[in-house]
């Protein structure tokens, strides 16, 4: 099976603090893979290294065979990254923001239009997209951000806590969108500290804590291995 992502011994240190201590895992093409763990486990640092924002202290990651350390610009053409606390340009309308971001990815006007049209559909916000983003609720902003991240149909979407801070209905909508996009062939790497939602969303998961991946597999495999009812119980066992 084609590998969308190969992570090989990634490490990241901030001075004397080692946030990620040699993480390795793989994501298959068209798969939804999750990094789950508590706050401060090293999920975001790992995702930021794969998204070419942080330079690994050692190790490397390969997006469809391209190294994030050696060819970051090439990698950026294949990925899309949704940061956990992605902010908006409050002076722009939702539509203006999507247009701006689409123009940074698109090769021409036609493609830009196509991206924006897809994004508008994903958000489901209709005419509210014509309002300034400063007037949006958190749920609306997050929907626009997710739409922005996936409108280009990247080969690998990296989504950091995509449902963070959202109410049940908004979170459900976003999970459904991610699932639908994966069915269309997009590979997705998500992170979350909400282990129950990940169980519903992902094909495979890796449990990360204190910068180390302790175990990985499908939710069912892990639950069976640890004789657990859910992934939270698996994490409890792993963390012991």
């Amino acid at each position: 099976m084609e590998k969308a992502l190969i992570v090989d011994g990634l490490r990241k240190s901030y001075g004397r603090l080692e946030a990620v201590k040699g993480v390795s895992f793989e994501v298959n093409a068209g798969e939804i893979f999750a990094l789950i763990g508590p706050n401060g486990a090293g999920k975001t640092t790992t995702l930021r290294m794969i998204a070419t924002l942080l330079t690994p202290t050692s190790g490397d990651a390969y997006v469809y065979g391209t190294s994030v350390s050696r060819e970051p610009e090439k990698v950026r053409h294949m990925i899309s990254y949704l940061p956990e606390e992605a902010g908006a340009y409050k002076n722009l309308t939702g539509l203006g923001y999507l247009n701006f971001m689409a123009s940074l990815f698109a090769d021409d006007k036609k493609q830009q239009k196509e991206f924006v049209s897809r994004a508008c559909e994903i958000t489901g916000l209709g005419d509210r997209l014509k309002d300034k983003m400063g007037s949006y609720s958190k749920g609306m902003t997050r929907k626009v951000m997710l739409a922005r991240a996936v409108m280009t149909m990247p080969k690998l979407a990296i989504l950091d806590e995509p449902t963070s801070g959202l109410d049940v209905l908004n979170a459900l909508e976003i999970r459904n969108t991610i699932k639908a996009l994966a069915k269309e062939g997009m590979s997705v790497l998500v992170s979350s500290h909400n282990m129950l939602e990940i169980e519903y969303l992902c094909d495979r998961v890796a449990i990360i804590d204190k910068g180390i991946i302790h175990v990985s597999g499908t939710p069912r495999e892990l639950k069976e291995r640890y004789n657990a009812q859910n992934l939270e119980e698996v994490f409890e066992e792993v963390a012991k």
């Binding site: 990254y81 940061p83 606390e85 992605a86 940074l104 990815f105």
Partner: peptide, 14 residues
Amino acid sequence: ENKTLETLLSTPIS
């Protein structure tokens, strides 16, 4: 401050 830099830096612009 507005957390827009990370998004911008992850786009394919040089």
